[in-house]
Nucleic acid binder design. Structure first.
Lengths: 223, 223, 223, 223
DNA sequence: TATGAATGAGGATTCATTCAT
DNA sequence: GATGAATGAATCCTCATTCAT
């Protein structure tokens, strides 16, 4: 009666092993799809296979969960890409191709692609998170791209251009693709086919970036 | 007291003058800032200087208000631009410049620029509205741009390219600028200066579109 | 200039001649159909062909309108019937037939039949009106019927019975018919056909009242 | 502090025990008193001793709660009565007495008696509910009564009559009693005493049904 | 008189958060 | 740790009432 040695029925086998990682994954998916206010914690919990109350064991409240999603879900994959770019030693044009195609493989085709859409939607509501996102995500990416352009100019591969501006223009289609895949595409998947085939669109993007529309003979930056 | 000729001052000046236009303007601003769900109709009403109930005299419910915002705020200015493009008879390159600069003047610099951000945020939650937006806004714009590209190719001004894809690439920076101005820019206005100076960014965009990054002598599409 | 003889534009021709009677009629119809709370003054106004504001020229508020409806709409037709009964000098059985058939012609088949349903629904919410209705409508009707029964008993036409109770039993089908015509019948008109043919039902009612179900040879009260 | 053996008193007794049954009971009372629209869910919750939100754990919305009230409150007791009648094997007259007295015991004297009043009030506003009520309550009751009458006719106990019509006439006083107890009676409990003593009224009803008002010697259906 | 735009209190419903188990 | 029933603040929407014209 006193020393309750062995529990007759091991209840814990039913436990869900709800580690924060799974919760964040579920949260990212739903935050991305519905936005911050549109996300119901009950749905996040259900998707993670736990109960509502369990979320509160790991995150103080909805806002903290949101911040954790942005922090954990975005920074890591980008850091990997940056490292690759910095250590690359081919031509600037090849580096550009590497970046654009790499973005698709590492981010664009994954769940992470939803985050730009999410941040665009919520930045105004969560200035603190927006600041964090700018510092930790946007600026590093922008710097990497700008340095890439500067290197191309320095090597004579590229015309002299404003690297900061060009960096934005390189990244712009990422946003478009992200928005389509996680926003409109949901509504009508096949209405703008050119957008659905993201890899082809990115190839055209590379082609235009390097050669432009004008029909002059390609320079040394050619394919 | 007898001959009551003409009332010197019209009383109706005291009225609230709550015309739909003002309501839409207020709604656009708040929808853009906070998203669909985050927008409280009471705030919209307050911003327009009327009471909650007044909104319902003009719009059946929140969703109808939202649709009206999208319709009135976007379709009209876009139609004007389209007309201009269709009747333009200069070179394709000049037409491209007209479009890009026109977008900035007509939309990008105005409150309308918030709508892409708004739609990106809400498309997944409101497929019906997203469909409407795609049909009424995105497709027409895309078609106009694609036709412009086709015309350039036909005239020999442009290399043979996939017009549908290029149309998306022409428009991509619009999205970036819109997202910045109405999302992140709110949080840190001066952290990515190249984005803040949208007109300059768009000039670089035009330059890249026409000539690319490669340092070849400019072709006939030159400035 | 002083004596403004003839008004250049006779605005008053557009006026609606909204006398209280028309308003009450419209109100009775809608109160009956939807109950007190369910009735929107806008609908009453629309049905009467006037504007919302006009109602307030004749009735202080919704409750006063309701009271006026009950007062004016019900008392008068009942008083007429009572007079007829009191001056009738045939047999009690014939008087009973007169009353039952008269109820149908004067009330059951008209808009007035809605009022019992209305009062049943609202009595608990408006005790004051209920009291008024009991005093002015129910009691007089009950008294008239009870007196009729007493007369039949006194004349040897009817068995000795509790006149007060029988009076209620005579009137009971009125309530059923009223409820059906103004309540359920709306939902499914043909699901209980015996109720739809109110005159036939009332004839059977008379037959049962006078002879009962038992198959004995009809006595002197026979048709 | 160390050996925290067994909590002497189970904490769960403090729980609110908000089972649907209690909610339905509270809802029936208030719906009956104020009608559908007049009922505020907050009041229902308060009467059941729970909060507003709790109602929504058990019923999707007000209409579903209303339907559940009708269902649980009426269908079950009626089904019990029907079973009794169908398996009864005495005379039709005795069966009739069983039904009329049973109605009083099982329904008329209970809170369930409020539902006819409730449905009369709301049928026009909620055709769907009215349809449900007709199908689930009125028709079964009517059929049972009609079959009872047909049986009496077949056995030679009753004169040949229209069973459908007589069924309505048998049930009519139920409605009157229900309306009085839950409507007017509230306002003036003692103004129409014959109605207040429902059991006596029903006995007179039975007497009239079987023998009529005419003073002929009772037939074989006698007491 | 008559109008109907404007108001805002009131009620249905949702969902983040708590807490007893 | 994990659960999910219970809570109640917050928000959409309705409609009786007012009032400038």
């Amino acid at each position: 009666m006193s020393t309750q040695t062995v529990p007759a029925e091991p209840r814990w086998q039913r436990r869900k092993q709800a580690r924060p990682g799974e919760l964040l994954e579920a949260a990212l998916a739903i935050f991305t799809e519905r936005g911050y206010i549109g996300t119901r914690l009950e749905d996040v919990a259900a998707r993670a296979g736990v109960s509502k109350g369990t979320l509160y064991l790991y995150f103080a409240n909805k806002e903290e969960l949101f911040k954790a999603v942005v922090r954990q879900g975005l920074v890591t994959p980008l850091e990997e890409m940056r490292d690759k770019v910095e250590t690359f030693d081919g031509s600037a044009a090849d580096m550009l191709r590497l970046v654009v195609r790499g973005w698709w493989l590492r981010i664009g085709a994954t769940a992470h692609a939803g985050s730009p859409k999410l941040m665009i939607a919520e930045a105004a509501n969560f200035p603190e998170i927006a600041r964090f996102y700018i510092e930790e995500v946007l600026l590093p990416v922008h710097q990497t791209l700008a340095r890439l352009v500067e290197r191309g100019v320095a090597r004579g591969e590229f015309r002299p251009v404003d690297a900061g501006q060009v960096a934005h223009l390189i990244a712009a289609p990422f946003l478009v693709i992200s928005a389509w895949r996680h926003g409109f595409g949901h509504a009508i998947p096949d209405r703008l086919p050119a957008l659905t085939d993201a890899p082809a669109l990115l190839e055209t993007h590379l082609d235009l970036l390097l050669r432009g529309l004008a029909p002059v003979p390609a320079g040394p930056a050619g394919h």
